[in-house]
Amino acid sequence: MALEIRPGPVLADRTTLRLGGRALAEIVFARPEEAEGLGQALESCGGAPFILGRGSNVLADDGERPLVVVSPRLRGEPVILRQRPEAGIRVRVGAGVKLQRLVAWLATQGLSGLGGLVGVPGTVGGAVAGNAGSYGDDLGAVLARVRIWSPQTGLAWVGREGFSTAYRRFTLTGVAGFFVVLEAELDLAVREPIELRQEMVRHLTDKKASQPITAATAGCVFKNPPGASAWRLLAEAGFRGKRVGGVGFSEKHANFLVNYGGGTGREALSLLAAAREAVRERSGLELELEVRVAP
């Protein structure tokens, strides 16, 4: 399939929070090399680029959005590139692969490093770009190389010297603004598959007990400030279970925003603004968004 420009999707249909209006257009491609045409395609569409995988960490406003959705559908099976346990097993995976598919596949191969991310939705590309993490595991700790496209670099492989990672953050050296993650190479350790599966079952059981993972949510909406927990700050400020219209913070986990049905992007943005102000006034701490807001 060649790079294709399609009519703009309704973002409420493409995000797990089920909110958002219609984008201008969508650019779809299924092979890394096809990203070479992104510059020309974006110029012809005339809107701000917005990468969208499975929409699990996205909050979009209502109405007509001046966005061009970029959809890298780079799937297929992960591939083992190197099998030297003393140096780590290197695996290559496409950005469009579901993160949970990768986590499950790694467990069957006896490869550890991402088991803590069991139950985290989304795609590999989004997990790399946001340095997704859970239970002590994160993408940045195992990421060896990443293939990207950006207006500055074109199509390029970038090694550890060309990027940095931190808590929920991935930064490319010398690349400002828009870039697309196409493929990732991971260095992983060897471990007994049964141990990995048992550990993952425990993690998933804990998450089901403490997070509304079956609801229409975008996951955690705020990052944890240094030395504090966003969910605790929100609960102490009175936002556990607080709603505006059809959108509210979960009773189970105060940092999860839930669309209870009929919610709007405007309601969600209003609630987040009120929560940040309340936490700032009560604790003096500034909550930083973890969810991506579509402009």
Rank of each mutant, 00 (worst) to 15 (best):
P7K: 01
T15Y: 11
T16N: 03
G20T: 03
I27S: 04
P32T: 11
E33C: 08
A35L: 01
G37W: 10
G37K: 09
S44Y: 02
C45R: 13
G46C: 01
G47Q: 09
A48L: 12
F50H: 00
V58D: 02
G63N: 07
P66G: 07
L67S: 03
V68L: 05
S71L: 10
V79F: 07
E86T: 06
A87W: 12
R90K: 11
G94R: 10
G96N: 03
K98E: 12
K98A: 15
Q100C: 15
L106R: 08
G113T: 12
G116W: 02
L117P: 00
L117V: 11
G119Y: 04
V120T: 14
P121I: 11
G125F: 00
V128E: 06
A129L: 00
A132C: 10
G133I: 07
S134H: 10
G136Y: 01
G136L: 06
D138T: 05
A141K: 13
V146L: 10
R147I: 01
Q152D: 08
L155C: 06
A156I: 07
F163C: 02
A166R: 12
Y167G: 00
F170R: 02
T171W: 03
V175D: 05
F179D: 02
V180L: 04
D187A: 11
E192C: 13
P193F: 06
I194S: 15
R197I: 15
M200W: 09
K208Y: 07
P212S: 10
I213A: 06
I213P: 02
T214Y: 09
W231N: 13
R232C: 03
R232I: 09
V247A: 01
G248E: 13
K252A: 15
N255W: 11
F256Q: 04
G261T: 11
T264R: 12
E267Q: 15
E267W: 13
L269W: 10
A278H: 10
V279A: 04
R280W: 05
S283E: 01
S283D: 02
L285G: 05
L287P: 06
E288Y: 00
P295T: 05
